[in-house]
């Protein structure tokens, strides 16, 4: 069955027709063309599909598109401002990412953490990023970037 959903995506009002069984991640990527959330495990383990719904990080591979009706969604593409610019520089400085597949999810989780806790220590970063798996660089350089004080 088809249904039209209305929601805010990266601060823009959107309206999309979806099937009731469609997964939000697939709608974002294939119907709207927002490519930052990735499909890694497709079962809520890896965190590559992490987006913000109403300011909270969730796994978009476990959300039905129809559940996004009336919600406020932010993906990596919608992150703006000083904080994200600062983070970007840190990730470059510490060479935190190699293949980049996990990066959008990691950055979303980092942004959620920094909003609550602007100066997290390494343990707090580890806990906040526990749901984001990275299979190439290891986590040290990511944690360093987020905790770097300068």
């Amino acid at each position: 069955m088809k249904q039209v959903i209305n929601f805010t995506l990266n601060n823009e009002k959107r309206s999309v027709e979806v099937e009731t069984g469609d997964i939000l991640l697939n709608v974002l990527r294939d119907k709207i063309g927002i490519k930052s959330p990735k499909c890694g495990c497709d079962r809520g383990d890896c965190g590559a599909c992490t987006i913000l719904i109403n300011g909270k990080s969730v796994r978009s591979c476990l959300v039905l598109a129809v559940e996004a009706d009336d919600q406020d969604i932010i993906t990596l593409e919608g992150l703006k401002g000083k904080e994200i610019e600062r983070l970007k520089k840190k990730f470059l400085k510490f060479n935190s990412f190699q293949c980049g597949f996990c990066s959008p999810g990691v950055i979303i989780s980092a942004v959620e953490l920094l909003k609550k806790n602007p100066r997290p220590d390494a343990e707090e970063v580890k806990e906040a990023l526990a749901g984001n798996l990275c299979r190439c660089t290891g986590y040290t350089s990511i944690i360093r970037a987020i905790t770097d004080p300068s």
């Binding site: 809520g44 965190g47 992490t50 909270k56 990080s57 969730v58 796994r59 476990l62 959300v63 989780s109 959620e112 806990e127 906040a128 526990a130 749901g131 984001n132």
Partner: peptide, 9 residues
């Protein structure tokens, strides 16, 4: 329980 993303949902 799970990760933050799971706890949020």
């Amino acid at each position: 329980i799970g990760s933050l993303q799971i706890q949020n949902r």
